[in-house]
């Protein structure tokens, strides 16, 4: 029996030892994206391995804040810039100017020099619209956000909860900035009447629309594109008022003990190879000139991006989420 206890102890030691060569990377990237990124990075940097801690934006942010006393992450990679700015305010990020910093778009990095975070790509809201179910229900294809508040959409819309989902937050922040606060909340009051479910993840509404669970799923363009490609009977719609958006960005934590390895990951993120991979998923990436149109998205995403003040979105995040939770949380999915 003693042997068994020692066995467990040995087991744990072994598990700790195996971690040594690995970077612990917190991310809110989609599970189907990280594999390609990891393979490319690890190929370019043999000897450094990536261990992902993946969850939705809100949860990764909350986790990082909660672990402030006993931090686990070495790098935060693929998290909303608004969230990274929040972490920066808490002094949790360290400045680093990755190789190739001068090549990327000026707008897609922390203005500080050297920057605390660097952008990777931009993701924007989109509507997944199930054409089969719409036909059954004789529902018209929405072309604007305002269309979604029409009574015929009642109980047919799923939307991500902004408190947990980065996609959800960029929508809310986008509406408030496009429409102004008062009109924005009024729009959401109307939308709330038609919402069937607020989901935990930004992808779930699109997948639910794809499965016909609801007709309309508020999601983002990568997921819309991908889901349609997988054969779902959906249209990806970019509402004409404009798209809420956020930037996926990367940063090194101030507490990492593996600074060298962490810097390699940021260097890689600014490389052409990395940006080409980003471009397979997103219309707009950090490096100019690598622009790919997503095959299933009609319209020019970059043109349609709404005016977005990151500073404002980050500074007001807590206030907006509190207000949102107060107004609508009853319909939220557990989590």
């Amino acid at each position: 029996m003693l042997r068994q206890i020692l066995g467990i102890a040995a087991l744990s030691l072994f598990a700790t030892a195996a971690q040594a060569q690995e970077l612990t990377v917190y991310t809110a990237l989609e599970a189907d994206q990280v594999k390609a990124y990891q393979a490319s990075f690890e190929k370019a940097n043999p000897g450094t391995k990536v261990r992902w801690v993946r969850d939705s934006t809100g949860i990764v942010t909350a986790k990082l804040l909660a672990e402030k006393a006993n931090p686990q992450a070495d790098v935060v990679f693929g998290l909303a810039a608004t969230s990274l700015m929040l972490l920066d305010k808490e002094g949790m990020l360290q400045a680093y100017a990755p190789q190739g910093l001068d090549k990327i778009k000026k707008t897609m990095r922390d203005p500080a020099d050297p920057p605390k975070w660097v952008g990777m790509d931009i993701w924007a809201s989109a509507i997944c619209f199930n054409t089969v179910e719409a036909q059954k229900k004789k529902a018209a294809t929405p072309v604007s956000w305002a269309d979604l508040t029409k009574p015929e959409c009642k109980g047919q819309i799923a939307m991500p909860n902004p408190a947990s989902s980065g996609t959800g937050y960029l929508m809310v922040s986008g509406w408030l900035q496009m429409m102004g606060e008062e009109a924005g909340w009024k729009f959401m009051d109307g939308l709330h009447q038609n919402i069937a479910s607020y989901t935990h993840s930004g992808s779930k509404p699109c997948r639910q629309a794809a499965a016909g669970e609801y007709v309309v799923g508020l999601s983002f363009e990568y997921r819309a594109n991908k889901t349609k490609k997988d054969g779902a009977p959906i249209e990806a719609i970019l509402p004409k008022e404009g798209l809420g958006w956020d930037m996926e960005a990367a940063a090194i934590t101030s507490t990492t003990k593996k600074t060298d390895a962490a810097r390699k990951l940021l260097d890689w993120s600014l490389s052409e190879g990395a940006n080409k991979l980003y471009a397979e998923n997103f219309a707009i990436v950090a490096l100019p000139g690598i622009q790919a149109k997503l095959e299933n998205i009609q319209g020019d995403v970059e043109q349609m991006l709404a005016k977005n003040d990151f500073q404002w979105a980050a500074a007001n995040r807590d206030r907006i989420l509190a207000e949102w939770t107060k107004r609508y949380d009853g319909k939220s999915e557990a989590k």
Partner: peptide, 29 residues
């Protein structure tokens, strides 16, 4: 149990999912 309400509970909150929501969702230990 929180497995069942988590998946099918919709907006119907119960204690077990609250624990999960507080801890995992909001990191409010």
């Amino acid at each position: 149990d929180f497995g069942v309400p988590k998946v099918i509970g919709g907006q119907y909150n119960v204690l077990a999912t609250d624990v999960y929501k507080q801890v995992v969702g909001q990191q409010n230990f």
